[in-house]
């Protein structure tokens, strides 16, 4: 009887199983199963088995998948206010990020997705993205001049690289390794674990920790399922997610350190450039949002958070 009543939640994502975010989701699944006395379970499909991040979001809306994890950068095409996270140097430091995500603004943005049938449950830490290059180190924005930098398919990311003087080039993540190797692009940008796990450090020997953006990952449930759960079940899910979010921050910090150590050991020169030079170059991007009231308000509110 219990087996039939069991609510099995299908969760698909694009990362491999050694990734800290995957581990956090496994933690969440185990906690939920225990918390619900075995009446609820989460089945996880890693590695893009059920599609890319944007396809998974569509499957949530379609109703054939229950949960997914996507970058806020992908989420912004579904829930536009999320694009605020793509702004460079929005946060002062790690504490500032967590205060924003854990506070009212974070919660508001998670709930905002419901209008699009996507209920945000929590943010996983995705660190900060920095430039890595093939030929020469990036010590200041001047070094980016004329370099073709691979960016995500996002207007904000392209504007940022443009403002810094580089040439933003959208190339799919899967084609990036060979594109770097053959010189179609001169560099790319990502957080340390991705730089390490994608093996791009085999080709790019310079990593400049300018930490320009901090785009979190978002854990999302389709409203199809969320509205179908009773209050008790919703509470269980939210609690398990919250616990896994806290756990993931520890896992992430560890993974980030391990990744940096590993790439250094592989001969990558890790540079700590003067961030203020980069910050100055992109300051004008903020003014570009003056016409977009909602985003502009969000920016101001985020800056006021302690």
């Amino acid at each position: 009887n219990t087996l039939q009543d069991k609510k099995v939640i299908k969760l698909a994502h694009g990362l491999d199983m050694s990734h800290p975010v995957h581990k956090a989701m496994v933690f969440m699944a185990q906690d939920l199963e225990k918390r619900s006395n075995g009446t609820m379970a989460v089945e996880i499909y890693p590695n893009q088995q059920l599609g890319t991040e944007r396809q998974a979001l569509e499957l949530l809306q379609i109703g054939s998948l229950d949960m997914t994890k996507v970058s806020a950068a992908v989420m912004e095409n579904f829930s536009p206010n999320m694009k605020v996270f793509g702004l460079p140097f929005l946060f002062r430091d790690r504490a500032h990020i967590f205060n924003v995500l854990d506070g009212d603004i974070g919660k508001e943005l998670l709930d905002g997705g419901q209008k699009y049938w996507l209920k945000g449950l929590g943010y996983y830490d995705s660190g900060s993205r920095s430039f890595y290059t093939k030929e020469k180190p990036v010590e200041s924005p001047e070094d980016l001049k004329g370099l073709k930098i691979r960016v995500m398919e996002s207007i904000t990311a392209m504007n940022m690289v443009n403002s810094l003087g580089g040439s933003p080039t959208p190339i799919s993540w899967g084609e990036l390794y060979t594109s770097l190797q053959q010189g179609v692009v001169d560099g790319a940008e990502n957080n340390p674990p991705s730089f390490y796990l994608s093996r791009h450090y085999e080709v790019c020997k310079f990593y400049s920790l300018d930490e320009h953006t901090s785009v979190p990952d978002v854990l999302i449930m389709g409203t199809h399922l969320w509205n179908d759960l009773n209050e008790q079940q919703q509470k269980w899910v939210q609690t398990s997610v919250d616990l896994s979010v806290a756990h993931q921050r520890e896992l992430w910090a560890k993974a980030e350190q391990e990744a940096l150590d590993a790439v250094k050991k592989a001969g990558v020169q890790v540079i700590n450039p003067d961030k203020s030079k980069f910050q100055k170059k992109v300051a004008n991007m903020y003014e570009g949002y003056k016409d977009e009231n909602e985003i502009y308000n969000l920016i101001n509110r985020i800056q006021k958070v302690e």
Binding site: E58, Q61, I62, N77, F78, Y116, W117, E153, I155
Partner: peptide, 16 residues
Amino acid sequence: FRLVYITYVLEQYSPA
């Protein structure tokens, strides 16, 4: 058609 409808009412636009 349901796919078209969903992406239409949920105002999904392409990134670039």
